[in-house]
């Protein structure tokens, strides 16, 4: 960080200034002149928090996608379908047993098992044939989507949250000053979204620890860098592949439960989240977990701020970010070292 400041003093100053302005905008009560121009602070803070939680959800979906891509170099366009399948399974489990947490476990295991089957029967058979793999996963996603439509129909499903995380909580963030009493008004925010945010951060840190501090993580990183050399040293790389695929698919399943909890499940969500993971991974850098985190945060924020401040052009903003990244850094913001 110090080296960056030494090399590029101008950009460092700009970044510090931007962070300072952002912190001020979050914590200080806004003067009325600003509220007249930009709108109420409550809207801004809500968009900010919604963006961050949406980014957390995108991170969960995209990190599995990018992990699979980084290691095996295959683009699993059925990833959105796995996400949606996880959501439906989570709904069924939560509906039948009433245990919200159990639905995560079941979803992870079932969708992970489907990932193992995919790796064993599809990807292992056509290793290195990019186009064929992509086409096959497109076919699989069409088939899965139609089977899901068959079973669950076109209705909206929402997984009910347990009592202990339902309802709002007051955060120590000022949204404004009450005109009558002169006291500060604080932001109230749904607990479930904060829980999801914390869970995503925990999963992200856990993934980083596993990748960087354990033996299996070492194997995965070595495989990302040079999988031929890794298999030449005697590692049974097919097993690593199956493991990573199962984990990535399971993560999509978990993300499905989360998405089904704080949004809803309906046909078409699979494509929405496939697109989100594609854009996140393109922006962040293919195969990089920190890249997925950064990309997910950017896209989540862009989507929420866009839908608040420029409703008809929200998607264009997301797209614009992708275009800019492609134009100036085609390898993504945080590229994997080669």
């Amino acid at each position: 960080m110090v080296r960056f400041a030494e090399r590029r003093p101008f950009w460092a100053a700009v970044i510090v200034l931007a962070v300072a302005v952002l912190l001020w905008a979050i914590f200080a009560p806004w003067p009325e002149a600003l509220e007249d121009v930009v709108g109420r602070k409550k809207i801004f803070l809500n968009a900010l928090f919604n963006g961050i939680t949406l980014g957390a959800l995108y991170f969960l979906v995209a990190s599995g996608f990018t992990l699979i891509f980084g290691l095996m170099k295959n683009v699993n366009l059925a990833h959105g379908s796995l996400y949606m399948l996880g959501g439906y399974i989570g709904y069924e489990v939560a509906d039948a047993t009433g245990w919200w947490l159990l639905s995560f476990l079941v979803s992870f295991v079932v969708v992970g098992a489907i990932g193992v089957l995919l790796q064993l029967f599809v990807f292992a058979r056509m290793e290195g044939q990019d186009l064929k793999q992509t086409l096959v996963t497109i076919g699989i996603s069409i088939v899965i989507a139609d089977i899901m439509l068959w079973i669950w129909g076109g209705d909206f499903y929402q997984i009910l949250t347990p009592d202990w995380i339902t309802g709002p909580i007051e955060l120590p963030l000022i949204t404004g000053i009450s005109r009558r009493s002169g006291e500060y008004i604080y932001l109230t925010y749904p607990v479930v979204r904060l829980v999801i945010l914390l869970a995503a951060i925990a999963i992200g840190i856990g993934m980083w620890l596993v990748l960087n501090r354990t033996r299996i993580g070492m194997l995965v990183r070595a495989g990302v860098d040079d999988r031929d050399m890794l298999s030449a040293t005697g590692v049974r790389i097919q097993r690593v592949f199956i493991l990573v695929f199962a984990f990535g698919a399971g993560l999509a399943g978990i993300a499905g439960v989360i998405g089904g909890t704080f949004q809803s499940m309906a046909p078409g969500e699979d494509i929405r989240f496939l697109l989100a993971s594609l854009v996140v991974v393109i922006v962040g850098g293919m195969g990089s977990i920190p890249g997925a985190a950064l990309g997910a945060l950017l896209i989540g924020l862009a989507e929420q701020f866009g839908s608040v401040y420029a409703p008809t052009y929200a998607v264009v903003l997301t797209f614009l970010i992708m275009v800019l990244v492609l134009a100036f850094r085609p390898q993504g913001l945080i590229a994997v070292r080669r």
Binding site: L275, I282, V316, T318, F319, M322
Partner: peptide, 8 residues
């Protein structure tokens, strides 16, 4: 990328 453009 083309899929992303189409969807956008």
């Amino acid at each position: 990328i083309t899929l992303a453009i189409a969807a956008a």
